[in-house]
């Protein structure tokens, strides 16, 4: 009877030890099983670099918005260069992203901001803003040793009438900007 009890006790002791070992091994394995994020980090770094590159591609940032500014499509493959940009939206005209307090309604500029009234082409606030830009660029050109050619980028909404564009170009021309780049969305159709 005593032998049987001893054997049972030994068996129970062995089983307990084995269970302890299994638990210990499991604990050890759990400690080694850390999340491997190196490959994920590599992928994220590549995406980040790609996005940073595409972000820095265009020297001038043009944000299109339905009902405000939608550029026309063109087959042109020429790329933008860094220059003064004039935005002609459906509701306002901006110079270098800043408002010049010229509102547009139904493709027409408010006659109060025009020097010669409703039939005139000269938009006074636009002229003042561009003249200031031209002055700064001329000084910059003199220092850098190149000739000021009066390059301006015009990003206009595709639905505006030519009259409005003509008014803006006429005013820019008076402010010594004579070479224009029209911003377009590239397409091959």
């Amino acid at each position: 009877m005593a032998d049987a009890t001893n054997a049972a006790y030994e068996y129970w002791k062995r089983k307990k030890k084995a269970a302890k070992q299994v638990k210990k091994a499991a604990r050890r394995d759990k400690k080694d099983m850390g999340l491997t994020i190196t490959s994920l980090l590599d992928a994220l770094t590549i995406i980040l670099l790609f996005l940073l590159k595409s972000f820095g591609d265009n020297p001038v940032n043009i944000t299109q918005k339905k009902g405000e500014l939608q550029l026309p499509k063109s087959m042109s493959t020429s790329n933008m260069a860094d220059m003064v940009d004039i935005h002609i939206g459906e509701s306002a005209i901006l110079v270098h992203g800043k408002s010049i307090h010229v509102n547009v309604k139904n493709g027409k500029v408010d006659e109060n901001v025009k020097r010669d009234g409703a039939d005139g082409f000269f938009i006074t606030p636009l002229y003042k803003a561009l003249k200031e830009k031209a002055k700064k660029l001329k000084t910059k050109a003199k220092r850098a040793g190149w000739r000021f050619e009066g390059n301006a980028l015009v990003a206009a909404d595709k639905a505006i009438p030519y009259r409005l564009l003509s008014e803006v170009l006429y005013t820019a021309n008076q402010a010594e900007f004579k070479l224009y780049s029209f911003a377009i969305v590239k397409t091959r159709e």
């Binding site: 980040l48 996005l51 070479l179 911003a183 377009i184 590239k186």
Partner: peptide, 21 residues
């Protein structure tokens, strides 16, 4: 950074047409 850049990135290619007056 990625969501921020995704929001501001331009996937539409913008070009220019040169004009003189």
């Amino acid at each position: 950074l990625i969501p921020f850049l995704l929001l501001s990135a331009q996937f539409i290619q913008i070009g220019i047409i040169l004009i003189q007056t």
